[in-house]
Computed example of a mutant assay.
Amino acid sequence: MDRSAILRLLHSATSPSASAAKRRIVRFWHHSDYERFLLEWSNFDMPSEDASEAVRHLPSIEAFSLPVTSELLAIAPANGIWMENDPCVSVHATVHKPVAREKGIPWGVQEIKAPLAWSTTTGHRVKVGVIDTGVDFSHPDLKQSLGRGINLLNRGSLPHDDNGHGTHIAGTIAAANQLHGMIGVAPRATVHPVKAFDHNGSAFVSDIVLGIDWCVRSGMDIVNMSFGMKTRSKSLLTAVNNAYNAGVIIVASSGNDGKRKSIDYPARYPQTIAVGATNRLRRIAPFSNRGMHIDVYAPGDKILSSWLRGKYNEMSGTSMATSHVSGAIALLLAHRPGLTPTDIKAVVKRSMLPLRGTKTPRLTGELDVLRMLQAVER
């Protein structure tokens, strides 16, 4: 790859007209080309502070995300460059409504039998990276449950939640305010918020790749991914693979389109644990994607959890189901440290309770914490 091609890409990405170009992830056929691009980029004289934000380095997958015009896209193969879109991804939650403060244990936490396991394990010292919209650091139910995180949208700020979704997920995983508020699945686990999603609940794939990379480098045991998209991304798959090979368990939501044979990415990748949602009747929730790609179902309908400004909200979605599974795996890992992602997935699938109203009860089932703990004793 010659220097002029690199400079054309950088000049185009940082020009005033770049905002009209589509953001793409640029990867290289040869490692030497990546090194050359990295060198040119580090020496490149950015025209403004905004321009420097336009080019994102994704070191874990040896790539860059930047705006690329259609004209430059056409010359990519001749220069040893491989490009794919850097699309927007959305969180997997449907309607939500404020609720009055409700003390005690939410129905989903009870349903998966988490309280029956707390005499054995509470998730102590297990680190859960939550790639989401951030978290409400002042929420009384989360104060004991939060560890260091990162804000990928504004590196100088804490990962504060300006949407609510991330705070809701964190509460189900590890809320710990038994006397005055709610309690989550693994109340002694630590949630590390990774803010990759904006106030609308949207993120670029490149932000998620950076979030996964941070989780791997920061020693997370579990990564909760309550979001998805319809199209596959090689860059996202590479990042998921890197985490999987590093021993990090990735739990991902299947999507809320009510599809019977298809689920969203990254849940569809075999390196993740794909989660569908059930309701109080222990049936698959109508909105949940389902089918052979789902690894386990968990409560996801009308789930009460923490919200912004110390409040509570009821939400539905496969997002909510995913947080129950992340919490359950935290309980299992605290009890049996050292289990690999492959081990965990096998235990989850071996210990499911058959669902009501399904024709293939042996192939699919609902999360059950007690059965999980029993399964590792065998």
Rank of each mutant, 00 (worst) to 15 (best):
L373C: 10
K195C: 00
A174Y: 04
L39I: 03
I212E: 02
A114W: 01
G228D: 03
R336Q: 14
A175V: 07
N224D: 03
S254N: 06
M320H: 02
S254P: 03
A328N: 02
A246W: 03
T278P: 11
H92I: 05
P67C: 12
A78P: 09
N256A: 12
M46A: 13
P337W: 05
D207H: 00
G365I: 01
A175M: 09
T69C: 05
S235N: 06
C88R: 00
V376T: 15
P286W: 01
D257R: 06
M1F: 07
H324K: 14
R8T: 11
V296S: 11
I81R: 06
A63V: 04
D343M: 02
A252K: 00
R155S: 15
P299N: 05
G258M: 10
L142S: 08
S145V: 05
E40K: 09
S90M: 12
D161S: 15
Q178D: 07
F37I: 07
A174L: 07
F137A: 07
I75W: 00
V109Q: 09
D136G: 08
L38F: 02
I105C: 14
L331E: 12
L153Y: 03
H92P: 01
G166C: 12
R280W: 04
R101E: 14
G147K: 01
T340C: 09
I273D: 02
D50C: 13
K234H: 10
P286I: 04
D33S: 15
G276C: 10
V369H: 07
L339I: 14
A117S: 13
L72V: 11
A175K: 04
A267D: 10
I75P: 03
N245K: 14
L304G: 12
V55H: 06
A175C: 07
I61C: 05
L38V: 02
A78T: 14
R101L: 15
H96D: 12
H11D: 13
P286A: 15
P87L: 07
K349A: 08
S48H: 04
L331H: 11
P140G: 14
V325A: 10
L353P: 00
T94G: 15
E102A: 08
S138V: 08
L373N: 02
N279Y: 07
A203E: 01
K127D: 05
L333A: 05
V191T: 02
I250A: 11
T358E: 13
R217V: 13
V185H: 08
V185P: 04
R24V: 00
M292F: 08
A51S: 07
D301L: 02
H30Y: 13
R8K: 14
L38R: 10
H139I: 09
L237Q: 07
P106S: 15
L142R: 04
V348D: 06
A189C: 09
G211E: 05
N242V: 07
N245E: 15
N279C: 14
V109F: 06
A274Q: 05
M220T: 08
K302H: 04
T358N: 13
D132K: 06
R283W: 09
S15Q: 12
S42W: 05
M220H: 09
P47F: 12
R8A: 14
L152Q: 04
V348E: 03
I344A: 03
K97W: 10
H30T: 12
A243G: 06
A63R: 01
D162T: 10
P341T: 12
P16H: 04
V89S: 03
P193Y: 03
N163C: 08
R350Q: 13
R282E: 12
G258R: 05
S52H: 06
V95E: 15
V99C: 13
G147Y: 00
L237W: 01
G164N: 13
